[in-house]
């Protein structure tokens, strides 16, 4: 029995919430219910799975490191002002975020392939995986850090200058520590994006066990031959993501 408009409003809120919760919870439940629990550990410890896991972790951390090394200077430059050059670069850097990764893969192939415009011959190497993952992951890092820098109160940098600190020292000892939450959030999102990268990788880097077959590719392959193994691999990724969100819950949650 609905007693008041207030109750009605509460229900109007609750119904879509429940629907959304189901939308997210049911797939997870599906994985858990269908997982071959008796074979879980042997499957997890099998060579192909460990290879894929090792490769995924190596490549995603490398991609996060590359995003930091290249993305930080870009973010700093973008945050320094606004001009058409900066806007153009921002669009360029953000593009992979909105493009389907497969398009990124094709574009990377045409740029860094053997017959691409650079002729670098990157495809089919682990380096290509890192490049593909950096390509799709770095935009997240750059945008997050640029937002952090723009919100940074520059008077602190001014204070550092009056204390005798040059721009370089000020950046590393004042600005960067003060925007550390943005930097770490950016790194996490970039890393997670790299870990989950599929389309650009399979198109650009190929799919070979041990050198380019990361977890998502292994899941893709396993899904057609050993669906149980695909479920185990998927659960491993879910677990990694869950652990990460747990570790970063303070940074992540809007509630402090």
């Amino acid at each position: 029995m609905i007693r008041s408009r207030r109750d009605l409003a509460a229900i109007a809120l609750l119904v879509p919430v429940v629907a959304a919760v189901l939308l997210f919870a049911l797939p997870l439940l599906g994985l858990l219910l269908r997982a071959p629990w008796s074979d879980f550990v042997p499957t997890l410890l099998s060579t192909p799975v460990l290879d894929a896991l090792r490769l995924s972790l190596t490549c995603s951390f490398s991609a996060a490191a590359c995003s930091f090394a290249l993305g930080l200077p870009v973010a700093v430059w973008l945050a320094q002002g606004s001009s058409w050059q900066r806007n153009a670069v921002r669009v360029l850097v953000t593009l992979p975020m909105v493009l389907p990764p497969i398009v990124g893969g094709v574009a990377l192939l045409l740029a860094y392939g053997r017959n691409g415009i650079t002729g670098l011959s990157l495809p089919f190497t682990t380096t290509a995986v890192v490049v593909a993952e950096t390509y799709v992951a770095m935009p997240f890092f750059v945008l997050t850090v640029e937002a952090g820098l723009r919100a940074f109160d520059r008077r602190y940098a001014a204070a550092a200058a009056t204390l005798g600190s040059g721009p370089w020292r000020t950046f590393w000892t004042v600005t960067l520590p003060m925007i550390a939450p943005s930097v770490s959030a950016g790194l996490v999102v970039a890393w997670a994006r790299a870990l989950g990268e599929f389309g650009a990788t399979i198109t650009f880097a190929g799919n070979l066990k041990g050198s380019t077959r990361t977890m998502p590719l292994a899941i893709y392959v396993a899904f057609e031959t050993h669906p149980d193994a695909a479920i185990v691999l998927s659960l491993v990724l879910v677990l990694i993501a869950a652990v990460l969100l747990f570790l970063l819950r303070d940074r992540w949650s809007p509630v402090r």
Binding site: L110, R114, N115, P123
Partner: peptide, 21 residues
């Protein structure tokens, strides 16, 4: 040694046409 286990013959055709393999 295959440089990549491609998901379909069409992918191989594309890679050959692009000159990547």
């Amino acid at each position: 040694v295959s440089v990549s286990d491609e998901p379909s013959v069409k992918a191989i055709m594309t890679m050959v046409q692009l000159g990547e393999i």
